[in-house]
């Protein structure tokens, strides 16, 4: 038993992968048309936002911090993007401008969080809780009620194919490449050192402050990507979008084997963790659990997964 635990150390994502395969098979049994391209694509479309947010959240948690404002960042980016597109008239140039504005918004939110926490030494949990309220308030300011449809060009591209391959699959592959890219930068090692033992990182001469800010900006960036995907899915603006993303992204990160204490884990694991969460809600949906029990089941599984993940990823 201890030998098993030993060999799994640092490869907790293998457990997550096993869980994912099992869930996939259960899902297949409940929903025989799961393997048709259209169903797979629609599943991926639903899962993608959480996958992206969870990837960003991983970097913050690896650095020993946490970001509870991701949901509000998603909402803010969404309303900024749709508003900019609406203002510029919905041509291709306008759409690109809207996307750029959204990405900049996400980065700015991350920078704001990072400066408060790494430079002004605010507590990460309550600070991102507070900034989440602020970002959410700003989203309501930009767009008070849901609406403001995006031009067809936007959502058709998102729902369609590029070079014969579904756009969502492109984005998924892009996310994998981004993970691989970051994993090979010295930054990630420095970030994990910062989250692992901050005094050691400091003593070794690492610039701990900018490293933590960088992690928050990555979280903001990936939240922005998630918001752009959600915008493609809903084809409109919604200032209350992404409410539950903070908790589910943390759950995905923990499920993927990343320690909440920081310093240990991987973004790839979180990607698998997010897919597991998506699969769980699929299974709950198709398992004919009465509607009124679905939220309870999801909540319980999330809590159990959190507890289990914390136990498995502990030293």
């Amino acid at each position: 038993m201890s030998a098993l635990r030993d060999s799994l150390r640092g490869r907790v994502w293998l457990v997550t992968l096993a869980a994912l395969v099992t869930l996939f098979l259960v899902n297949l049994a409940l929903q025989p048309n799961l393997l048709t391209p259209n169903v797979l694509k629609s599943n991926l479309t639903v899962f993608l936002p959480l996958v992206l947010v969870a990837i960003g959240q991983t970097y913050v948690i690896l650095g020993g911090d946490i970001d509870l404002s991701v949901g509000s960042i998603v909402a803010l980016v969404n309303v900024v993007t749709v508003s900019v597109i609406a203002m510029t008239g919905g041509e291709t140039g306008g759409i690109l401008l809207g996307i750029a504005a959204g990405i900049l918004t996400g980065l700015a939110c991350g920078l704001f969080n990072g400066v408060l926490i790494a430079i002004l030494r605010f507590q990460p949990i309550v600070t991102t809780f507070a900034t989440g309220i602020i970002f959410g308030g700003l989203a309501l300011r930009v767009l008070p009620t849901a609406g403001l449809p995006v031009p067809a060009g936007y959502w058709r591209t998102y729902a369609g194919n590029v070079l014969g391959i579904p756009t969502v699959l492109w984005i998924f592959v892009f996310a994998l490449l981004a993970i691989a890219f970051i994993a090979r930068r010295p930054f990630l090692t420095h970030l994990m050192a910062t989250g692992g033992l901050r005094t050691a990182a400091f003593q070794t001469g690492l610039r701990v402050g900018p490293i933590r800010i960088g992690a928050y900006m990555l979280s903001g960036l990936f939240s922005a990507f998630a918001a752009l995907c959600l915008t493609g899915e809903t084809a409109s603006g919604d200032p209350l979008m992404g409410r539950l993303l903070a908790l589910s992204s943390i759950s995905a990160v923990v499920l993927g084997g990343t320690a909440l204490a920081g310093g240990r884990g991987s973004a790839f694991g979180s990607l698998l963790g997010a897919l597991v969460i998506g699969m769980i809600s699929n299974v709950i949906f198709f398992a004919a659990i009465p509607f009124e029990y679905q939220t309870l089941t999801t909540g319980l599984i999330t809590l159990l997964a959190l507890a289990g993940g914390v136990l498995v990823s502990r030293r």
Partner: peptide
């Protein structure tokens, strides 16, 4: 389990909401 209080109570809120 040493789950951070914020995460634990947020998770518990989800369960109670479901209940």
């Amino acid at each position: 389990l040493r789950i951070p209080p914020l995460v634990m109570t947020l998770g518990m809120a989800g369960v109670v909401q479901g209940a």
